[in-house]
């Protein structure tokens, strides 16, 4: 169903959502009927001039009534909280084999890059039954990746990588919308998510014009932007070698140690003086944010990640709560 009567149901998240949503609708109807019913009954029965006896409520009873409904309301509220929270927590664990797709948001389009290097604009093809994790960055303002049929959305905030995880369960074409107001053509910043059978997805990606894949683009940039001048074995400058750095624990000059995950590498390009690796001087230029755009930095990160392939993946604990994305 995907029309005027239902938003469609195409991800593993939907069933739990719909159960909770339905329960809340039923609760709301019950409470509205209860309050509305009481107002009507009291309104009719105690309207001016009726000959009903109007007894007083004894103090004790009225106190019990008050305590009763306060406790009942509090219980219902906490119960719904528990239900919603536990559902959210279980849905937040991303499996290791999730298909990682990069999304770049800008006014007013969605640029998608698949691991194979296939690119698309304002559309996202995903295989059914395969957990997918979107790593999203914004080049300008805040956008929000919203797929009603998945019951999911995630703001894409400039300056950080936002993560959205889902598992498509039903093939079809579903609307994709930008939910965070982003300027003139906000309402037209949409597209579609196409859920395909895995085999079809494979043939679809194969049929795409093979643009340079991200890591290859990153490799070219690694030379073009001058990174290799210092970070290569032949260089005379004393700079860390990046082979296999991804996922490793790195000791910093101030005694801390961090895992070299994606946000760390990204930060090290943009803000090199912040987490300097032990044994090196903070000599790296700091103006890469002016030279490279977001997409290019993503490509570089992906190249450095490739250099580290084969190493055991590190604990993906994030470095700072401010950079924490929804996972």
């Amino acid at each position: 169903m995907n029309g005027a009567w239902g938003p469609g149901a195409a991800s593993a998240n939907v069933q739990g959502f719909d159960t909770l949503f339905t329960a809340l609708v039923i609760l709301s109807v019950v409470i509205v009927l209860l309050v509305g019913g009481l107002v009507v009954v009291f309104g009719v029965r105690f309207r001016k001039g009726t000959k009903v006896e109007r007894h007083a409520v004894p103090t004790l009873v009225s106190r019990e009534v008050e305590i009763g409904w306060t406790a009942a309301t509090a219980f219902i509220a906490i119960f719904i909280f528990w239900w919603a929270a536990s559902f959210r927590i279980t849905g937040a664990v991303i499996p290791d084999d999730a298909l990682e797709i990069h999304v770049e948001a800008k006014q007013w389009m969605w640029k998608v890059e698949h691991p194979s290097g296939a690119r698309e604009l304002n559309a996202l093809h995903v295989p059914r039954g395969q957990p997918v994790v979107l790593k999203m960055a914004s080049q300008d303002v805040i956008h929000s990746f919203f797929v009603p049929a998945f019951r999911l959305k995630q703001d894409v905030v400039p300056g950080r990588i936002s993560i959205l995880y889902f598992e498509p369960t039903r093939t079809g074409r579903y609307p994709l919308e930008c939910a965070e107001y982003c300027g003139t053509d906000h309402a037209r910043m949409g597209g579609e998510v196409v859920v395909m059978e895995p085999e079809l997805y494979a043939s679809w990606t194969a049929a795409q014009p093979q643009a340079d894949n991200l890591a290859r683009e990153g490799a070219a940039l690694f030379t073009a932007a001058g990174c290799s001048g210092c970070h290569s074995p032949a260089s005379s400058v004393h700079a860390p070698q990046l082979d296999g750095v991804y996922g490793r624990v790195v000791n910093l000059i101030d005694g801390r140690s961090v895992v070299a995950d994606e946000p760390y590498i990204r930060d090290s390009i943009l803000r090199p003086a912040r987490d300097v690796v032990a044994g090196y001087d903070p000599i790296m230029p700091t103006d890469f944010s002016r030279i490279l755009d977001d997409g290019e930095i993503t490509a570089l990160v992906s190249y450095i990640r490739e250099l580290g392939a084969g190493m055991p993946p590190g604990d993906e604990t994030l470095r700072s709560p401010m950079m924490e994305t929804d996972r």
Partner: peptide, 22 residues
């Protein structure tokens, strides 16, 4: 009452994720 009850929907994180900004 109706506005308050729909507030319960929005206070639930998973539901808000869907209906936020709609």
């Amino acid at each position: 009452t109706l506005g308050g009850l729909t507030g319960l929907f929005l206070a639930s994180v998973p539901i808000d994720v869907h209906v936020h900004d709609t």
